[in-house]
Write a protein that binds this DNA or RNA. Structure first.
Lengths: 259, 259
DNA sequence: TATCATTTGTTCGTATGTATC
DNA sequence: CGATACATACGAACAAATGAT
């Protein structure tokens, strides 16, 4: 019987006790936690206190809670999808979305007009509130079930400069790159990685569990004049995916063993 | 007066109403939300329901709540630190930790022995539970106040093969790379990016606000025999930092304008 | 400096709804 | 169907941080 008494709020102490039990392996991954009633008994606290503690552990991503079943220690296995970063590999505009993963489109892509935000404006070197063409896709990796949201943003200036782009506003990225290459651009790009918590609709679309952050990958593609031409964004749950940048430097490495 | 009635739980409806008001700009970034008492009045619900709704918005990172003051719309500005990714830039082992940011060590580095986890074992191509030397550092960027946790992991095999390493077990990474280079290794590496929610101690150490994920950067350095030699890890709050991989491909790009 | 009103934080109690088995 | 377990909701009280008086 671990007495609860240490620091701060009661529910924090309860949470700390359970957390410790989890991290020490007392509750093994996948194993169920005691029920709320049992935890009340165990720590001599009220139901709201127990729920507050459990809620804290959910927010930390330590446990999964299923209505009517119980709470379970989350098995923090490695992500199932390892997306290869692209920077540094030029091969003439032949890129199929973002990664080796064989994404399938879950729905028809939706196209629209929008404006730059602070983030996208910075990446594209534009002012905020400048007009953009947008195209969203929901992607699914049928092998692992991993879902991702893909977005292509094209500034008006780029669409004007490349008539073929304006006609078929948003084919797949591979097509877009091809068009840009045919328009005489020698492409290069940079990638930026961020992370944030999803909004409810993103959580739904990506089928994310509790406390799963979202990885944001932004690829800015620039042309011969070193000006940003388009922006590709990919959002994917950090619980399922990781992003790996491999080598291109002095040495071409042998293929790593356990990939 | 927006009537609350639609979907699911009451607190979800309240949360949705507030969320919509925030995203539509009705509550501007930095502006205070109505107090809990006012929200109770506004939506004719009890205090627990209001608090539940507010709690949901906190978990989404939409608002910051300050004890005794109130709730405020979080201004989702861009991260203040943009860490440059390293992959693809070999220059003979001269690397100072992770990034241009002038990190300062907040404390003395702590060294210890540990074992591979599932993640680190995979990155280092080892079995799980193999022995490692570890060295942790808490870093602070004095310019922005951004904090980061840095870790160096060295397999026993590497330490044995390179006696100089074993003697001064953990100098700064720059020193370690230098030693490896002097030992005749031609280094290359790959970097993997993940994200997760922080544990309480990480939140404290990194001074993270609510709902801020942590970006995990892992750099595996390999030697002439293409075997992984050491692993560098950097954890930094995704609210303050982003990671950018710039170009090395066919073309040496001009320095981007607005960095 | 001290006090007070306001606001959020914590904790209890209680009741009912809903998912799972 | 019933038992179990989590989800939602209300009410009430006190603690603690904040800012103004």
């Amino acid at each position: 019987m671990t007495e609860i008494q240490r620091p701060g709020a009661l529910y924090q102490q309860v949470a700390a006790a359970i957390r410790e039990a989890i991290l020490s392996g007392e509750y093994e991954p996948g194993a169920p936690l005691p029920s709320e009633a049992q935890l009340m008994e165990r720590y001599k606290v009220s139901r709201p206190t127990v729920r507050n503690a459990v809620s804290a552990l959910r927010a930390e991503g330590l446990i999964d809670v299923h209505h009517g079943k119980g709470s379970f220690v989350r098995s923090d296995s490695r992500p199932v999808v390892s997306l290869p970063g692209y920077v540094g590999r030029t091969s003439g505009g032949r890129f199929v979305l973002h990664g080796v993963a064989a994404w399938e489109q879950a729905e028809e892509p939706s196209t629209y007009r929008t404006h730059t935000t602070e983030t996208t404006a910075h990446l594209l070197e534009l002012q905020v509130e400048e007009a953009l063409f947008g195209c969203d896709r929901l992607l699914i990796d049928p092998t692992t079930g991993t879902r991702a949201m893909h977005r292509t943003l094209i500034p008006f200036a780029t669409a004007e400069a490349v008539p073929d782009l304006a006609e078929a506003p948003h084919g797949e990225p591979a097509t877009v790159y091809e068009i840009l290459t045919k328009a005489g651009h020698k492409l290069w790009w940079s990638e930026t990685v961020r992370a944030s918590m999803p909004l409810p609709d993103e959580r739904t679309a990506l089928r994310l569990p509790d406390a799963a952050p979202v990885l944001h990958l932004s690829r800015v593609t620039c042309g011969t004049d070193d000006q940003p031409l388009i922006l590709e964004e990919l959002r994917v749950g950090a619980d399922r995916a990781e992003l790996t940048y491999r080598i291109t430097a002095d040495k071409q490495p042998a293929r790593r063993a356990r990939d």
